[in-house]
Amino acid sequence: CKVCGDVASGFHYGVHACEGCKGFFRRSIQQNIQYKKCLKNENCSIMRMNRNRCQQCRFKKCLSVGMSR
Results as ranks from 00 to 15, higher is better:
K40Y: 15
N43L: 11
F24H: 01
Y13C: 06
C18S: 01
H16N: 09
F59L: 14
C54I: 00
I33H: 06
V65K: 01
C1T: 09
S28Q: 01
H16T: 11
E42V: 02
C38T: 02
V7N: 12
N50H: 05
I46F: 05
N32M: 07
Y13V: 06
N50S: 08
F25N: 04
V15W: 02
C62N: 01
S68D: 12
K60Y: 14
N52T: 02
Y13H: 10
K37N: 15
V3A: 03
L39N: 13
V3D: 02
N52Y: 15
C57K: 04
A8K: 07
N50T: 11
N52A: 15
F59H: 07
N41C: 03
K61T: 04
G14M: 02
G5Q: 06
K60T: 04
C38P: 04
Q30A: 13
R51Q: 11
F25S: 05
H12L: 05
C38G: 01
R27C: 03
Q56C: 08
K60P: 00
Y13W: 10
Q56R: 11
M47D: 15
C62S: 02
N32Y: 02
M67F: 02
R27M: 13
K36W: 08
E42G: 14
K2N: 12
G5P: 05
Q31W: 07
R58Y: 12
N50A: 13
K2A: 13
Q55W: 04
R27D: 14
K61H: 04
K37W: 10
K2T: 10
G5S: 03
Q31C: 05
C4M: 02
S28C: 14
I46R: 11
V15A: 13
N41S: 12
E19H: 11
A17Y: 00
Q55C: 09
M47Y: 06
I33W: 04
C54A: 05
R53V: 14
Q56M: 12
A17D: 04
V3N: 02
N50V: 09
G23V: 12
R51K: 13
N50K: 08
A8W: 08
N41P: 09
V7Y: 10
D6Q: 06
C38D: 01
K37Y: 04
Q56P: 10
E19M: 01
R53I: 14
A17Q: 00
G14C: 03
K37G: 07
M49A: 12
G23R: 11
S28R: 00
C18M: 06
C57F: 02
I29E: 04
V15L: 09
R51G: 12
R58V: 00
Q55S: 11
A17I: 04
R48S: 12
L39W: 05
F25H: 06
A17G: 04
N50L: 07
A17T: 08
N43T: 10
G20S: 14
R48G: 13
K36G: 13
Y13K: 06
D6E: 11
Q31M: 09
Q30S: 08
K40F: 13
H16W: 13
I33T: 09
N52F: 08
V3L: 02
C57A: 03
S45A: 07
N50W: 06
S64P: 01
N52M: 07
G14V: 00
N32Q: 14
S45R: 09
S28V: 07
H12P: 01
K36A: 10
V3Y: 03
R53F: 15
M67T: 01
R48A: 14
Q31G: 10
I33M: 08
N43D: 10
S45Y: 12
Y13I: 03
R27N: 15
H16S: 12
S68I: 11
K61S: 02
Q31R: 09
S64T: 12
K60L: 11
F24L: 09
M67A: 05
V3R: 00
V65Q: 03
I46S: 08
L63G: 00
V7E: 13
E19T: 06
E19Q: 03
H16G: 07
V65Y: 09
I29N: 12
G66M: 05
C57N: 00
K37C: 06
R53N: 15
K40I: 02
S68P: 02
A8Y: 02
C18R: 03
N52E: 14
K2R: 12
K36M: 09
Q56V: 10
F59C: 02
C57G: 01
C18P: 00
C18A: 06
V3I: 09
V3Q: 00
H16V: 12
C1M: 09
N41K: 12
R27K: 09
R27V: 13
R26A: 14
A17W: 03
R58S: 01
M49R: 09
C62L: 01
F25V: 02
R26C: 08
Q31E: 14
R53Y: 15
R53L: 14
Q31H: 12
R58E: 07
C62T: 00
I33A: 08
C57W: 05
R51T: 10
R48E: 14
K61M: 02
C38V: 05
G14L: 01
Q56N: 14
N50I: 07
H16L: 13
F25A: 03
H12N: 10
C62R: 04
L63A: 11
H16A: 10
A17E: 02
I29A: 03
E42Y: 04
S64D: 12
G10V: 11
S28D: 07
K2Y: 03
R26G: 11
G14A: 01
F59V: 08
R53M: 13
C57Y: 02
S9Y: 06
Q55I: 05
Q30M: 06
K60R: 12
S64V: 11
C38Y: 02
L63Q: 08
G23S: 15
K40E: 13
C4R: 00
Y35N: 05
K2M: 08
S28M: 09
V15T: 00
E42W: 04
R48V: 15
V7W: 10
I46G: 09
V15M: 03
E19P: 07
F59M: 08
F25C: 04
C18I: 08
Q30C: 05
R48I: 14
K60A: 12
M49W: 12
S64H: 07
R53P: 14
S64I: 00
R51A: 10
Y13N: 11
G5C: 02
V3E: 03
S45P: 10
K37P: 15
H12R: 03
V15F: 00
R58N: 02
K61P: 00
R48Q: 14
N32S: 08
S68V: 06
K37M: 15
K2S: 08
C54Q: 00
E42N: 12
N50P: 07
E42T: 04
G14W: 01
N41D: 10
A8R: 01
M67K: 03
C62Q: 01
I33L: 11
S64Q: 14
Q56F: 12
S28P: 04
C57H: 00
K61L: 07
M67P: 02
R58M: 13
F24Q: 04
V15D: 03
N50Y: 09
K2W: 04
K2E: 10
L39M: 13
N43M: 08
R53W: 14
K36Y: 09
Q31V: 04
F24P: 06
C54Y: 05
K40A: 14
L39R: 10
N50Q: 13
N52W: 03
M67V: 02
K40N: 15
N32V: 04
R53T: 13
F59I: 08
A17R: 01
Q55V: 07
R69T: 15
L63N: 00
H16P: 11
M49Y: 14
N43V: 10
K36T: 09
C57M: 00
H12D: 07
K61Y: 05
I46H: 10
N32H: 05
V7T: 11
I46W: 03
F25I: 10
N32I: 08
N41T: 12
C57V: 00
M47G: 13
N41L: 08
R48D: 15
C57P: 00
K2C: 05
G5L: 02
K40T: 13
N52R: 02
G66D: 01
M67L: 01
G66V: 02
C62V: 04
C1V: 03
I46D: 11
Q56A: 15
